[in-house]
Amino acid sequence: MILLRFAPALVALLAVGFPVATHAQTDTVIGTPTAPLVPGRAAPAVRGIAIDERIADDHGVVVGDTLRLAAEAGTRGELVRVDAIVRRAADPSEVARSEYRVRLHLDQLQRLTGSEDRVDRFAVALRDSGESVDSALARINHVAFGFRAHASRDVAVESSRTFQVVDRFHRAIGGITIVASAVFLLCILLLKVEERRRAIAALRLAGLSRRTVALSVIAEAAVISVVGSVIGAGLGWVVTLAVNAHYQRLFRTPLTFAVLTPGITLFAVTLSLLLGIVAGALAAWRLVRTPPLVLLGR
């Protein structure tokens, strides 16, 4: 998730990503015209563009409408026709960025922005000639004149730094939460077993061996942990639905924010089971070593 961008070095070099400006007044919200884009009359010379679903939703623009598009507020720009409405891909780097997007032909954007025959970047596909990406890169950069080539994988690594940070943060928070839950579970299970001290004393007085009593205590704690974690997983699943619905609405993206995978469920159940067994064993060890009459308070 991209959060803050101050430095131009991080400005995405998107050939088709420009804030929409119209002849109408815009408001103070960054990148979001409030006054509706005014549909005009379609003219034959008018070229087609694709617009973001957000613009269509916010301003009631439909395919076939004519808009005025300018690179800078207050300038004339040119009339364009909406040929398509585009739904944004579920791109995590777009999350939390609320500006509109329009897509238009390269020459049209160059003319509109006065950038002549300039581009921010272009993609190069290598022929199947056996040359490695690295040697092609070196060759291009050796003769570079005003540009630099990067391997797609390096660009991907750089642009995924944000997610790596978020991922590390989530892992850290997750780690803390797991430790907290583990201590909590251990504590509660220990207390719950201790609560049964009278029943355990009665079993011991009835002649059950320490081993049998200890095993029954451990088994009970394990069953409680597993049942609890399964209920917790169900609850977690409901929470993921709520989280996804909330953030998809908040950030207007089809992106999935929380996923409960079988792996996570298995991890939760296994961890709970282990903790249950540890807590049960700890409590049982203490209780079976204490004489039954002491457990009864005599």
């Binding site: 961008r5 101050f6 430095a7 131009p8 400005v11 804030p19 929409v20 400006a21 815009t26 960054i30 990148g31 979001t32 015209p33 690179a71 800078e72 507020a73 207050g74 500006e99």
Partner: peptide
């Protein structure tokens, strides 16, 4: 800033 942008968020100028 240029209309509709945050400081240095895009390459837009006034």
């Amino acid at each position: 800033t240029p209309r509709g942008t945050l400081p240095f968020d895009t390459e837009a100028t006034v």
